[in-house]
Design a protein around this nucleic acid. Structure first.
Length: 951
RNA sequence: GCGAGAGUGGCGGAAUUGGCAGACGCGCUGGAUUUAGGAUCCAGUGGGGCGACCCGUGCAGGUUCAAGUCCUGUCUCUCGCACCA
């Protein structure tokens, strides 16, 4: 074995890790074939954002897991596609660029370089030849191309399918109105459309945000305040796909938790739309007759208030109605006497942010002065305005049934509105039935109808069907479906995103005509122009509006246009990157259909749960549009999804000290209204004091101060954050312990999907394991690298074989099921055992190294070489095991008497039940425990245990 | 409030899915050796009791020959949603 000078035969990851990384890179060891040559496996990590901070220890957790799967399956003969790239457009990169005052492209490329270096440093087996970034011009050319497909698509509700806009049926009256009218009609039906809507404007970020990007009235990124502002924006009609997005979840191999989150986000509900007459009192009968003749109109006229309800069975209990403060009928319904009060209320509601509305749990509202007629009984009921009804859901108006809806109940109690029970809950133990029947308690469940005229006595389900049918034939209602999901607000007022490939037609005076023109596919990409100043200015006018005229105002066929100056949101690029990885360099198509058909769908997709809703929903939507339009072959992109758990900082012990230096015990510590920590007994402020493990001890359930056990302290691990100073940097771990140790530790911490705290001591533990692996095989006392003399070319003995084959069996089984912590434990047992063996068969060492290689590939490659192999082990066949060799000849069987282990007996591994029982009965201790009691029953589980039941 | 997940030694976690609780690692204790660099090796380590034994998987019940695992109730923690009619 040739040696580099100065290379000591001690395990030194600082030398061997870069060495093997270079070998893999130079030989393109992990290059995936264009088309699979055997059973295919597409394993994907969620796209990282290359932030300026570099990799976090959370990243390598999922990446190591997928890397293990890929290396394992390559050795098992599969054709593996395992690419990596960067989601580089969007706010984080742009914010970083602004902070460091560099052009976004320059700082993005620098950040990508950092990420790439760190990823390569960890030895992941990506096919780097497929690397891409969403900011690559040749990539976003296809992002824009897909946008044009979406723009060119309308959703056919009959076929439940996206179809070319050219196939959209045009009503005769529109055709008659001319080509411009037809174009407008088409524009209204595209999946990508413009709308003037109330949007979430975030001044601090200088852009609007999608509903999904706003949490508790603040921006999900950065936690900045968000305002409601009317703006013209691009929207994607994701709601058209709501049903399919929900239904197609069922067969996916995702955790039920994530599926449920998506289902809840889509929020499908079924019920009915009902029209309540609000015209003049004497016109009611005429209206009823007209409706009975005409049927239920698609658009309601001004003489009705249309509501959506999931409980049409409670119509007889509707004692008032509520419209949202933004409802278009507010002015019309407000009587002179109520005008001032209504106006004051609506002004106040408009000024309050969503956050304020949520924090104020108390119901508020104001009476309009008007009444509507309840269609089931002709009773007039008052119409109120209240902000607990949302303009953006359903019709923006409700019928209120206080007896059977908790929100309506609270409101009715506060404003003294009658509560009429119409559902009898029956005899339920958990509920005061009489209180419900008296209208003192709200019951929102199903039951039997009461006080409901001819419907009295029906079950809730029967009632719903009957009344919906009856009201439909009377022309005043119809069955309806609603979703919480809203259309996707798709434009951003930022520089660092994909430009829309859309032109706005201008007239002779340079004013927009309202006509749109898509950029021709052959003219893509639309690149970003150079700007001297790309920073947002806090106004909702996109920075691209400052682009040079030759970019901003193209002239085509003599017509002058203005480019769309909004850019796409960050999610755009990550909606389809998994397709481009299949064919990253294709200049003709986003992906070659033949390659797409064989590689898709993704067999394993791993990432954090923070993308449970946004990315996964958006990407599924795009995929379905591409599917409908024939560009992809699968209904869903991500067949199997696994969410890695969060890695927390190290366990911390925290005590609370008053200003005078005395300790406050944990149960006494709370927060005041302002959020500062206080001693609840005195109200005085306390501060957190970090404690060392030596200063605390556990007493019963809780930790206390060692010096003063009456003081309880807090012990917990928290999210890693810069402000807490508990962030672990992967660079430092690799430098101090090596990449293999980092990978191994992250897998050894616990189950992949669990949240778990970091521990530096634990890293050291797996590093010690790697040292022991090295010494098991390499002679570290020699001056040159050579095999440990104990490693000899002899066959394993029976016991060694048992250890070897059991290790193979269990590492194989658990790796295949994505349990990575237990295989490491098994390999540790293997090393503990063989390190004590004075003869270590060469063949056993080889097979062990192969088992270790997916987990710790660098040391494995090095040991493989030292064991005498010239080429990489990456494609060596995974070692098989022989079940027969894992078995022992004799086994120890625990003997229970009345379920408690009282003795153990040695029997042959294949002993019969009778033989085990005989051996157990012969045991002196067992006889003692049975004594003169009667043996009622004997349970023998062959190979496991025997239990005597005595009386 | 609603939904999901989880509670096992000082710590991270195992437990072939109803069959010997605590594998493996960290930490700790004792010993050997030390030509120190992430030392190594040996022994021990859930609690109690001198002992035979007893008690132990958040808590309280239940099913079973047998329960960390199944059922009922309850508490705590984490995550997600939160006026969606």
């Amino acid at each position: 074995m040739p040696l580099r000078e100065g290379f000591m035969p001690r395990y030194n990851p600082a030398i061997i890790e870069p060495k093997w990384q270079r070998v893999w890179e130079d030989n393109h060891t992990f290059r995936a074939p264009d088309l699979p040559t055997s059973e295919k496996l597409y394993v994907l990590d969620m796209f990282p954002y290359p932030s300026g901070d570099g990799l976090h220890v959370g990243h390598p957790e999922g990446y190591t897991a997928t890397d293990i799967v890929c290396r394992f399956e390559r050795m098992r003969g599969k054709s593996v596609l395992h690419p990596m790239g960067f989601d580089a457009f969007g706010l984080p990169a742009e914010e970083h660029a602004i902070k460091t005052n560099t052009p976004p492209r320059a700082s993005t490329e620098k950040n990508i370089a950092t990420f790439r270096r760190q990823l390569k440093m960890l030895g992941f087996s990506y096919d780097w030849d497929r690397e891409l970034a969403t900011t690559d011009i040749e990539y976003f050319r296809w992002t824009q191309w897909i946008f044009l497909v979406i723009f060119d698509t309308w959703f056919d509700p009959q076929q439940q399918k996206g179809r070319p806009i050219a196939d959209l049926p045009i009503p005769d009256e529109v055709t008659a109105a001319g080509t411009e009218a037809v174009r407008r009609y088409q524009d209204q039906h595209r999946l990508a459309y413009q709308a003037d809507a109330l949007v979430n404007w975030c001044p601090a970020l200088g852009t609007v945000l999608a509903n999904e990007e706003v949490k508790d009235g603040k921006s999900e990124r950065g936690d900045h305040p968000v305002e409601r502002l009317p703006l013209r924006q691009w929207m994607l009609r994701i709601t058209a796909y709501a049903d399919r997005l929900q239904q197609d979840l069922d067969p996916l191999d995702w955790s039920e938790g994530i599926k449920n989150m998506q289902r809840e986000w889509i929020g499908r509900s079924t019920g009915a739309e009902v029209d309540f007459y609000i015209g003049s009192q004497d016109g009611h009968q005429a209206w009823q007759a007209a409706r009975a003749a005409s049927g239920y109109p698609g658009q309601p006229a001004d003489d009705v208030l249309r509501v959506y309800t999931t409980r049409p069975d409670t119509l007889f209990g509707a004692t008032y109605m509520v419209i949202a403060p933004e409802h278009p009928f507010v002015l019309r319904l407000t009587t002179e006497a109520q005008r001032d009060a209504v106006q004051a209320y609506c002004v106040r509601a408009a000024a309050r942010s969503d956050r304020d509305r949520q924090e104020d749990k108390e119901k508020t509202g104001v009476f309009t002065g008007s009444f509507a007629i309840n269609p089931v009984n002709g009773q007039p009921i008052p119409i109120w305005i209240a902000d607990y009804v949302l303009i953006s859901y359903g019709t923006g108006a409700i019928m209120a049934v206080p007896a059977h809806d908790t929100r309506d109940f609270e409101f009715a109690q506060k404003f003294d509105i009658p509560i009429v029970p119409v559902v009898d809950p029956g005899q339920e133990a958990t509920l005061d039935r009489q209180a419900v029947l008296d209208g003192r308690v709200c019951f929102a469940g199903d039951g039997l109808a009461i006080n409901s005229g001819p419907y009295t006595g029906l079950t809730t389900a029967q009632f719903k069907t009957r009344i919906t049918d009856d009201l439909a034939s009377a022309g005043v209602a119809r069955g309806a479906v609603n979703y919480k999901l809203r259309d996707w607000l798709f434009s951003r007022q930022r520089f660092w995103g994909e430009p829309f490939p859309i032109l706005h037609e201008l007239d002779a005076d340079g004013q927009p005509t309202g006509m749109l023109r898509a950029v021709a596919p052959e003219d893509l990409p639309v690149d970003l122009p150079h700007l001297d100043d790309y920073r947002p200015h806090g106004r909702p006018e996109p920075p691209l509006a400052k682009a040079p005229d030759d970019w901003l105002y193209p002239v085509i066929d003599g017509v002058r246009y203005r480019r769309e100056t909004n850019t796409m949101p960050q999610w755009a690029g990550s909606c389809w990157y998994y397709l481009r990885f299949i064919d990253p360099k294709n200049p003709e198509a986003l992906v070659d259909p033949e390659k797409e058909r064989v590689w898709m769908p993704i067999d394993l997709y791993v990432g954090g749960a923070e993308h449970a809703v946004l990315h996964l929903l958006y990407a599924r939507f795009w995929h379905k549009v591409l599917y409908d339009r024939g560009y992809v072959s699968t209904r869903e992109p991500f067949q199997r999804l696994v969410n890695q758990g969060m890695i927390l900082g190290e366990m911390e012990y925290t005590g609370y000290q008053r200003e005078d230096g005395t300790w406050a015990s944990l149960p006494d510590v709370g927060k005041n209204a302002g959020g500062t920590l206080i001693d609840r007994t005195s109200g005085a402020a306390v501060c957190e004091i970090k404690l060392d493990a030596e200063d605390v001890e556990k007493v019963g359930e809780s930790f206390v101060l060692r010096n003063d056990p009456t003081i309880r302290i807090d012990s917990r691990a928290t999210k890693m954050s810069k402000s807490r100073g508990n962030v672990v940097n992967p660079d430092e771990i690799v430098q101090d312990y090596g990449a293999d140790a980092l990978r191994l530790y992250e897998m050894f911490m616990g189950p992949l999907e669990a949240t778990k705290p970091w521990s530096m001591a634990g890293v050291n533990g797996v590093r010690n394991f790697l040292d022991r692996v090295w010494r098991m095989i390499v002679d570290d006392r020699s001056e040159t690298v050579r095999l440990n003399p104990a490693v000899q070319d002899v066959p394993p003995d029976e016991e060694q074989n048992r250890m070897l084959h059991r290790t193979i069996r269990e590492v194989t089984r658990d790796t295949a099921t994505l349990e990575f912590n237990t295989p490491i434990a098994r390999m540790m047992e293997f090393v503990n055992y063989f390190s004590k063996q004075t003869v270590r068969p060469h063949s056993a060492m080889e097979r062990f190294v192969l088992l270790l290689s997916p987990y710790a590939p660098h040391i494995a490659e090095e040991l493989w070489q030292i064991l005498g192999h010239a080429s990489t082990l990456a494609y060596e066949p995974w070692p098989p095991y022989d079940e027969a060799l894992t078995k022992e000849k004799t086994i120890e069987v625990p003997v229970q008497v009345l379920g408690k282990v009282r003795a153990r007996v040695l029997v042959a591994a294949d002993a019969s039940q009778a033989e085990i029982e005989a051996a157990a009965r012969a045991d002196e201790k067992v006889q003692q425990w049975i004594g003169d009691k009667r043996v009622v029953k004997v349970i023998v589980v062959p190979g496991r245990l025997i239990n005597f039941v005595v009386k």
